[in-house]
Amino acid sequence: MTLATDNSTDIPPRVWWSRPASLPAPSSVRHAISAIGLGLPALLVLALLWELAPRLGWINAIFFPPLSQVFSALGEMIGSGLLAQHIGISLQRAAIGFGLAVIVAIPLGLLMGRYTLFEKISDFLVQTLRNTSQFALLPVFILVLGIGEASKIAITFYAAVFFLLINTIVGVKSVDPLHIKAARSMGTSDWDLFAKVILPSAVPSIVAGARLGVKSSLFSVIAAEMLAAQSGIGYLIQNSSLMLETDRMYAGILTLTFIGFLLNYGLVAFEARATRWRASEDKGAV
């Protein structure tokens, strides 16, 4: 069948998002390179100062060993597998707690966002719990759950669950009523309305909450490990400090910085992927 269709008047030009996802847009690569190029000198100055200040006796090398010494301690810990072991334990705790938070928060958030009565019943409770610091609760977790894995997982769960819950509720509430109306007109069942309309609408908000939640989980597990643990990167930093092995302590801190970097960029990339259907102009800044 031939239908003459004159699209010529309203087909927009192919723009950057029309290229295959595997090819990075040249402009963004150039942008990243120029950002690094401009930002790098300041970092190098800091590194140089860190190296020279203790060597020249400006600061005490016991508390502040030169950067090269920190790197050699880092290399030693990488070589012995010690670092990987502690990182693995910390990430595992954070991941389990965060995973549980996702399992609890998203269904709960969908219900709270959709059903006003459900929200009215639970909102006050959620607000109360949300404003109780997970760090303040650590002694409670330890008392109730012991100093083992359970209390660490509990704190990471608590650290993430409210970011996810609140953002899921906000996401559900911001669903376009027209999308609901259109879905209903096409005979969408209640279940499909949740799964195929409300949840995808809420994804950008949920993913933004997840980004905050992942960071919060990781920071919390480090803090918990510093206070009461025999393993994990937080324990490594705290224990090195107590032993005055400051080169290892700084190596641990730098490792955390590096993990934070990777995590942030990973999450930003994940967020961009999950919300790539949005128009480019309403995407948030990195």
Binding site: N7, T9, D10, P12, V15, S18, R276
Partner: peptide, 9 residues
């Protein structure tokens, strides 16, 4: 995606 199409499309 719809955001990549004109109103007519």
């Amino acid at each position: 995606y719809p955001s990549q199409l004109s109103g007519g499309m």
